[in-house]
Nucleic acid binder design. Structure first.
Lengths: 108, 108
DNA sequence: CCTTTCTGCAACTGTTCGGTTGCGCTTTTC
DNA sequence: GAAAAGCGCAACCGAACAGTTGCAGAAAGG
């Protein structure tokens, strides 16, 4: 449905954002790997990773007895598109207003 | 520090994202203006606008007996920066891996 | 002055969420 | 085959949140 909601909501939590950054910089990570450095339980990290996976930001893959998560930052592009679109609407509005002001000023 | 959290969390709600888009496309809006078209109560819209204002995405200004909200999409830029940074880290990782693979391939 | 129209604040409800603990299952290792 | 390591699932708790209703206050119009 609205993938944007999932992505923004996923990134709305600071711990989850740290998880995402960590997975990205490491290239891959597991829940137990990140639990200690993040100061939370493994289950908490697993939940965060599940949310990130639901948003399509990471990809889970079972390898033997551990499940490694790798970043799939494609949805970030969609989120950026939304932002630039909304920001762009405002910019257009601003530009239109400026044109109008310029016209009025030209008329006197 | 928590600026990113506020922005992403604010955009994490679909209704709030609609409010933000509406304010941007209209150039400005009030809570009562958006209540009916959005199908929620004025107070609900007011709360959403307060959250958006806390995130620095809109600016509230009292004009007579109404308070108009105007978009201030600067924080969108910060959020985009965070995203490109995280995505970029992954891309760098990928590039480094490719370089390594190329080196190994060159060595035999 | 009285009515209307905006707004803000407070209380309440149901739900979601971040986090924890506990248990059971699978996979590696000795 | 038993121990260890890694994971998922379920239940639970406190806090936050989206949304509502209700009410009081400020500004404009008659």
């Amino acid at each position: 449905m609205t993938a944007h909601t999932d992505v923004f909501a996923a990134l709305g939590d600071p711990t989850r954002r740290t998880v995402m950054r960590e997975v990205s910089t490491r290239g891959s990570a597991t829940a137990t790997e990140l639990a200690v450095p993040l100061g939370v339980t493994r289950q908490a990290v697993a939940k965060h990773l599940a949310v990130l996976a639901d948003a399509g930001l990471v990809d889970a893959r079972r390898e033997g007895r551990e499940t490694r998560y790798r970043p799939t930052p494609a949805p970030l592009g969609d989120a950026i598109s939304w932002m630039t679109e909304v920001g762009g609407a405002w910019d257009e509005r601003l530009a239109a207003l400026e044109r109008q002001v310029a016209r009025r000023r030209a008329r006197g």
